[in-house]
C-alpha cells in the first residue's frame, strides 16, 4: 500500500460500518437485546453528560505533564 493510501485510510470515516453481526435467528435476538440495553445506556448518558459540552471541552486545558 502506498503512503498516499495510508493517509486516506486514516481519514476514512467509518461511521457507516455497523457492528451487529449474526445471521441466525439467535444472533438477531441477541443483537436486539444488546441494542435495547445500549438504548437504555444512551438515555442514562444524557443525564450524566456535563452540560454545555462544547464549553466544557474547550476549557479543559492541561499544561506541564510528565
Amino acid at each position: 500500500m502506498s503512503k498516499q493510501e495510508h493517509k486516506s485510510d486514516r481519514k476514512k470515516d467509518s461511521t457507516k460500518k455497523e457492528e451487529e453481526s449474526g445471521s441466525s435467528a439467535k444472533g438477531q435476538e441477541k443483537g436486539k437485546k444488546i441494542k435495547e440495553d445500549l438504548d437504555k445506556l444512551m438515555d442514562k448518558i444524557d443525564d450524566v453528560l456535563e452540560e454545555n459540552a462544547e464549553e466544557f471541552v474547550k476549557n479543559y486545558v492541561q499544561k506541564g505533564g510528565e
Binding site: D13, T15, D39, M42, I45, V48, L49, E50, A53, E54, F56, V57, Y60
Partner: peptide
C-alpha cells in the same frame, strides 16, 4: 440514537468523561 455526526461536541465530551 441522536442522529448526529462526528463533529457533535457531545462526542468529545463523552470521550473526556
Amino acid at each position: 440514537k441522536k442522529n448526529c455526526g462526528w463533529d457533535d461536541p457531545r462526542l468529545a465530551m463523552m470521550d473526556l468523561q
